[in-house]
């Protein structure tokens, strides 16, 4: 087990290096030299040369990469070409908002999907089951930005039940209810696809457990049906769902770009779109890399958790 975890950690390192090289290469090959963008067109060529020299943009690529990555590892992400501020400061300002949104979406997805998935499995082949399956099909197919627009149009603008965007009422003091009021719709939209997926997984997992011998034994012992399902069934059905952390994370991070844009939510996704439109390379590079690193870590955690939780899995040394 320990050797499995260590091996799993060791595989992660080359993966992270590869991710950083790809991100760096992508920005190098993108057209439009940052130095050109950075300098006023009226500045004489000598000054521009000096600028390029100062930014280290005429050094060989491996040297530039080495300088960039050693900075990244020590937390120095460089400065934004547009705002001139350290990228790390810009990220830290935005990160909490994105984390709040992602956490809320995860909670919503779990709270909605698991009970519905169980009901669907317990009532297999009934009208309820078909309706739930159909809705989860719809949840996977619906574009999240459109769901966001529809909710804003009907619930926020026409009925006035929710604010149209932002994290809180402008210029108001911090108020937890106000924050939650602003958080609900974006979190719901971000959770849509994952809720649908999770419902389907819960249903499948529960169906598999439902026919196991120990469930029949529990019934034979005369336990109440609710106890059989929730205590004996659910515990075992939840096991495979742990891996869903890994499956959900990329959709959550990717979805945040769209949701933050629709709801003017000042998080990382919103910062990413602004930076892309301004060609602010240092910021784009860091965010792209950061999201990939998060996904890798998510996968790592899911694999390790799964190994700890399920003793049936063997880890051979091949």
């Amino acid at each position: 087990m320990t050797t499995y975890i260590i091996r799993r950690l060791l595989i992660t390192i080359p993966l992270l290096i590869a991710i950083s090289i790809i991100t760096f290469a992508l920005m190098q090959f993108a057209p439009g030299s940052p130095a050109v963008l950075d300098v006023d067109p009226n500045v004489p060529p000598e000054a521009r040369e000096a600028q390029i020299e100062a930014m280290g943009l005429n050094e060989p690529l491996p040297v530039q990469y080495a300088r960039w990555i050693s900075g990244v590892v020590t937390g120095d992400f460089g400065n934004s070409y547009i705002t001139k501020r350290p990228v790390s400061d810009m990220l830290l300002e935005r990160l909490p908002n994105t984390l709040i949104l992602m956490t809320a979406a995860t909670i919503l997805a779990i709270v909605i999907a698991i009970p519905i998935g169980i009901i669907s499995a317990v009532r297999q082949y009934t009208k309820t089951d078909y309706a739930i399956t159909l809705v989860s099909f719809a949840g996977v197919a619906v574009p999240n930005f459109w769901i966001g627009l529809m909710l804003i149009m009907f619930l926020s603008v026409q009925f006035g039940w929710f604010p149209v965007g932002g994290v809180q009422t402008l210029n108001a003091d911090f108020d937890i209810m106000d924050r939650l009021h602003h958080l609900f719709l974006p979190a719901l939209v971000l959770a849509t696809a994952d809720t649908a997926q999770l419902t389907r997984y819960t249903r499948t997992s529960m169906l598999e457990v439902k026919n196991q011998d120990y469930i029949r034994t529990a019934r034979a012992k005369g336990f109440k049906e609710s106890k059989v399902i929730l205590k004996h069934g659910l515990r075992n059905a939840l096991l495979p769902l742990i891996t869903l952390i890994a499956i959900m994370l990329p959709t959550l991070i990717g979805g945040s770009v769209v949701v933050e844009s629709v709801f003017s939510w000042p998080g990382l996704g919103d910062l990413f779109m602004t930076s892309v439109n301004q060609r602010d390379y240092p910021v784009i590079m860091i965010i792209t890399m950061l999201t990939a690193v998060l996904v890798v870590i998510g996968n790592l955690i899911a694999d390790i958790l799964y190994a700890i939780v399920d003793p049936r899995i063997e880890y051979r040394e091949d």
Binding site: A18, I19, I22, L26, A30, F272, V276, A292
Partner: peptide
């Protein structure tokens, strides 16, 4: 490696830049 990047970030970068 390609699976590690949430697709939309690389797509946006590739298309926009």
């Amino acid at each position: 490696i390609l699976f590690s990047f949430p697709n939309i970030f690389l797509m946006i970068t590739l298309v926009a830049l």
